[in-house]
């Protein structure tokens, strides 16, 4: 026969459980943030260490809004036709009508 639980004991367990979840998550945040910091620092290091750093990439001037775009879509190295195709594919894959999606920018990624 299962034993019913004391209300006071249940309250303590509930509060303690919620606190443990927070504590565990807080520690996890700390660990994830530390790992993230270490990763980003490692990724940034070679740039600082380079003896003659390459000139900073010139900030591209703000692109005009793509013709016919609903919103403020900006295209970088992407022809209008390709952009239209990409947006249509994304809408089709997501099964969301294209007019319910918002594309901010489309940029061609150049592999080094």
């Amino acid at each position: 026969m299962a034993i019913k639980m004391n209300v006071g004991e249940a309250l303590i367990d509930a509060v303690m459980g919620y606190a443990i979840v927070f504590l565990g998550i807080a520690l996890l945040v700390l660990v994830v943030a530390l790992v993230g910091k270490a990763m980003t620092a490692k990724a940034a290091k070679p740039l600082h260490a380079a003896p003659a750093p390459a000139p900073a990439p010139v900030q591209e001037p703000p692109k005009p809004t793509a013709p016919g775009a609903a919103g403020d879509l900006k295209l970088y190295d992407t022809p209008d036709r390709d952009a239209a195709m990409i947006m249509a594919i994304v809408a089709d894959e997501l099964k969301i009508p294209i007019n319910e999606l918002r594309f901010i920018s489309i940029r061609e990624v150049h592999r080094k």
Partner: peptide
């Protein structure tokens, strides 16, 4: 627990 369930069931 207030409704009478055991600890594991709750």
């Amino acid at each position: 627990v207030l409704l009478g369930f055991t600890g594991p069931a709750a």
